[in-house]
Every structure is written in C-alpha cells, then in structure tokens.
Simulated assay, not measured.
Amino acid sequence: MDDRTRTELEAAAFRRLVAHLRERTDVQNIDLMNLAGFCRNCLSNWLKDAADAQGVALTKDESREAVYGMPYEEWKAKHQSAATPAQVEAFSKSHNH
C-alpha cells in the first residue's frame, strides 16, 4: 500500500471514529478513559499536536469542536454528567501507575 492510500484510509477511520463518538453521547469521557485509556479530549489534543507539528494554526477550542461537533462547553452542558464515585475510583486505579 502506498503512503497516500494509507493516509487516506487512516483519515477515513479517524472521521468514522469521531462520528461514532459524536453519536454516542451516552458514553462519558471518564468511561472511555477507564476502559480505553483515552477520551474525546485526548483525541482533540492529538489532533492539535498533529496540527502543531505541521505548522497548522489550530487552537485547543477548535480541535475540541472538531471532535465534539460543537463547542466543548456546549457538549458538556448537554451531555456530560457528574462522575460517580465508582467512576472516579476506577479512574484513580487505572491512572495511578
């Protein structure tokens, strides 16, 4: 597989992942962190890191909106619930290495 095709396939997979996460607003970021070790914020940070590495101007707010499909504060108000004690405990255990 040539580099261009690989990049196009990876971009398509990224767009599908973002679309999936936008649809699954029931899945909280803390659950993603506890199960997979990354969340929507991580993904938006990786997008910003890639932009920075290429010299492309992209703010943190812009990268979050690219992942969330709306301003981050709006997404939080609409979809984010408070973490339960069990979620916080699981996060503490999984990220206290």
Rank of each mutant, 00 (worst) to 15 (best):
M1V: 00
M1E: 09
D2N: 15
D3A: 10
D3L: 07
R4Y: 08
R4N: 10
T5W: 00
T5S: 09
R6A: 15
E8G: 05
L9Y: 03
L9G: 04
L9V: 11
E10F: 08
E10Q: 08
A11C: 07
A11R: 12
A12C: 03
A13P: 02
A13N: 14
A13L: 15
A13F: 14
F14V: 15
F14K: 14
R15G: 07
R15W: 13
R16I: 09
V18Q: 10
V18D: 09
V18C: 11
A19M: 08
H20Q: 13
R22E: 02
E23M: 11
R24S: 08
R24F: 04
T25Y: 10
D26R: 04
D26P: 02
V27T: 09
Q28F: 01
Q28S: 00
Q28P: 02
N29S: 12
N29Q: 09
I30W: 02
D31A: 13
D31C: 08
D31H: 08
L32Q: 06
L32E: 01
L32S: 00
M33C: 08
M33W: 04
M33H: 04
N34T: 08
L35N: 13
L35G: 12
L35M: 08
A36D: 05
A36C: 14
G37Y: 07
G37K: 06
G37V: 04
C39L: 02
N41T: 04
C42T: 15
C42V: 04
L43P: 05
L43S: 05
L43H: 05
L43E: 03
S44F: 02
N45L: 07
N45K: 05
N45F: 02
W46Y: 10
L47Q: 09
L47D: 09
K48I: 05
D49H: 06
D49I: 01
A50D: 07
A50N: 05
A50H: 01
D52S: 00
D52Y: 00
D52R: 00
D52V: 03
A53F: 06
A53N: 10
Q54I: 00
Q54W: 07
G55E: 06
V56Y: 12
V56C: 09
V56Q: 14
V56W: 11
L58S: 12
T59E: 06
T59A: 04
K60I: 09
D61Q: 07
D61K: 06
D61E: 13
D61I: 01
E62Y: 06
E62A: 15
S63Y: 01
R64C: 03
R64P: 02
E65T: 15
V67S: 03
G69T: 10
M70R: 12
M70F: 03
M70E: 15
M70T: 07
P71Q: 06
P71E: 06
P71G: 02
P71Y: 01
E73T: 10
E73N: 11
E73Q: 14
E74A: 05
W75H: 15
W75Q: 13
K76E: 12
A77I: 02
A77R: 15
K78V: 05
K78D: 03
K78L: 15
H79K: 09
Q80V: 11
Q80I: 07
S81Y: 07
T84W: 03
Q87A: 12
Q87N: 03
V88E: 09
V88M: 08
V88W: 00
A90K: 10
A90T: 13
A90I: 04
F91P: 02
S92T: 14
K93Y: 03
S94C: 11
S94L: 13
H95E: 05
N96G: 12
N96Y: 07
H97D: 12
H97V: 10
H97W: 11
